[in-house]
Design a protein around this nucleic acid. Structure first.
Lengths: 137, 137
DNA sequence: TTTCTGTTATATGTGTACTATAACAGTTAG
DNA sequence: CTAACTGTTATAGTACACATATAACAGAAA
C-alpha cells in the first residue's frame, strides 16, 4: 500500500490520507487485520507533521475503518462488525444525499435521468472492476 | 423562488445560496430569462452581508448559470448556450469523478455494484420526479 | 442626470488546516 | 519488570477561507 500526498491540492492532507486508505479497503488491497504504519513513521515518509496523520487515523477510527491496539498500532477493521448499525445508516444516508445532489447538478445542466443513471453505472463499473476479490454472500 | 440560509450549517452561506439556485434551475422553478433579486436586497432579506450573496452570484456566473446585465441585475442564463464546451466537459468530468468517489465509499462499506447502481437510480428518480416540465429533444 | 446594478478594495474577526514541541497512558517486546 | 513504542492530548503559532463592515467605482437604465 503506497501512500502519497499532494501539497498543492486544495483537499486537506489528512483527507487525502483518509481517502487513500478507504480506496485500499474498497479495492481489496487492504483487508481486515492488515497493519497501518505508525503515525510518526508515515508522517516522516510523507514529509508532513505527525498530527496530520494522526487526524486522518482518528477520522478512520470514528468511521469504523480502523481499530487501535495500544502499542501494536493501527489495523484495518472488520467494518461489518466494528460499525454500529446506526452509524452505518448515517453513512448510507450521506451517500444517498450526495447522489441526489449530483443528480440535481446533472439535471440543471440539461441532462436526462437515463443519462445520469448510465453515467453512475459506468463509474461504478470502473470502481468495482478493480481487483474484485470479494465474495458474494 | 424562496431562498433561505442556515447559519448553523457547516456549509458556507454563499454555497447554500448557489446550491438553491441550481436546484431551482433543475426543478424548472427557475427558467432562462428569470430575474434574480439584487445582491443587496437578497442580503437584506436573508439577514446576511452583501458580499456573501455577491460571491454566490459570481460563482453562478462563472459556472454559466447566471448572466449579468448592468443595472438590470442578474438573470438565469440559457446554460446550453452560455457554457463553453470545454467548461461543460470539466463539469461533467467533475460529476463523474464524484460518482466514482461515492462508488468507492460504497464498496469499502461492503456494498455491491448492483446495489450502488440501484441506489443511484432511486435517488435520480427522486430528483427527476420533481416538476419535470422538460422537453425531450 | 440620477439611480441602481454588479464589482472591487481594504480591514477585521472567526474557524479550520497544518506545523511544532511537549508530555501522557496503554501495550508490548526484550 | 523495564524500556520502548503506540496513539492521544495539550498548547502555541502560522496560513488561508469564510463572513462581516465600510467605501468607492463603472456601467446601464429609468
Amino acid at each position: 500500500m503506497l501512500l502519497q500526498v499532494d501539497l498543492a491540492s486544495s483537499e486537506p492532507l489528512y483527507r487525502q490520507i483518509r481517502t487513500q486508505i478507504v480506496q485500499g479497503v474498497a479495492s481489496g488491497e487492504l483487508s481486515p487485520g492488515d497493519p497501518l504504519p505508525s503515525v510518526r513513521s508515515l508522517a516522516g515518509n510523507l514529509g508532513i507533521n505527525m498530527h496530520t496523520v494522526n487526524k486522518a487515523y482518528a477520522v478512520l477510527r470514528d468511521e469504523g475503518y480502523v481499530v487501535m491496539r495500544g502499542r501494536s498500532g493501527a489495523y484495518i477493521a472488520d467494518t461489518a462488525r466494528t460499525v454500529s448499525p446506526a452509524r452505518a445508516q448515517e453513512q448510507l444516508d450521506h451517500i444517498a444525499g450526495q447522489l441526489a445532489g449530483l443528480a440535481t447538478e446533472y439535471r440543471a445542466r440539461g441532462g436526462s435521468e437515463m443519462e445520469f443513471v448510465e453515467l453512475a453505472r459506468v463509474q461504478a463499473h470502473r470502481v468495482y472492476g478493480t481487483k474484485g476479490e470479494d465474495d458474494a454472500s
